[in-house]
């Protein structure tokens, strides 16, 4: 294996470099995916049919809690990558675990929120507005769910194999993914919830 020691571990081989670059391109595609969802949401936002409008169903408390949980998790995974660069495997695993727990908490609140919407008559089939709202939130939520499994797999591998160029590379890419979900959430918070409540 061709190790380059002037670079951080996650960049240390050619394949690692390719993986990170390729993942950035993938995130570009993800931006387009969410941009399309947001555009559709803005188009359908006021087309509520016989169902409720955003202002009638949005509640600030659970949304604020979700935001805090996810923003914190994004900070914590940053700490995890920092620990990884210092070679502190144990600290890194701890930070990653906290990240995933916070993500799990976020997901719990989001599921609770969805159940609530369905209860008050704002289900997937109610109107174009509810469909695009739940699809946009759901796509983000599905990404978080996928991230929970992915992150768990990475923690297990780091535990088993230690910090190798490969596990470091995977962890770093996972952190990119997690930060990205955080950024998307900021847009959801601002342009779906806050805008809808105004």
């Amino acid at each position: 294996m061709n190790l380059e020691h002037s670079q951080p571990l996650e960049y240390s081989t050619k394949q690692n470099d390719l993986n990170i670059f390729g993942f950035w391109v993938f995130l570009g595609a993800e931006i387009m995916l969410f941009a399309t969802l947001f555009t559709s949401y803005f188009v359908l936002e006021n087309r509520t049919g016989s169902g409720p409008a955003g202002a009638e169903i949005f509640e600030i408390t659970p949304v604020l809690i979700e935001t805090l949980l996810l923003l914190t998790s994004s900070f914590v995974i940053g700490l995890g990558i920092h620990a990884m660069r210092l070679g502190k495997t144990k600290a890194m695993i701890t930070f990653f675990a906290i990240t995933l727990l916070l993500g799990l908490g976020f997901l719990g609140f989001e599921i609770f929120e969805f159940v609530h919407y369905v209860h008050i008559g704002a289900g997937l089939q109610t109107s174009a507005f509810t469909a695009s709202l739940l699809t946009t939130l759901g796509t983000h939520g599905a990404h978080v769910t996928f991230g929970l499994f992915w992150g768990t797999a990475i923690i297990l591998q780091v535990k088993k194999r230690g910090l190798t160029p490969e596990t470091a590379n995977k962890s770093f890419i996972f952190s990119l993914y997690w930060h990205f979900l955080d950024v998307v959430w900021i847009f959801i918070f601002s342009f779906i919830y806050l805008k809808g409540m105004m």
């Binding site: 559709s40 359908l44 087309r47 174009a128 469909a131």
Partner: peptide, 12 residues
């Protein structure tokens, strides 16, 4: 049975 592109319930 969602209403993204239908002609009812706000679909477009």
């Amino acid at each position: 049975a969602t209403n993204f592109f239908t002609s009812s319930n706000g679909g477009m």
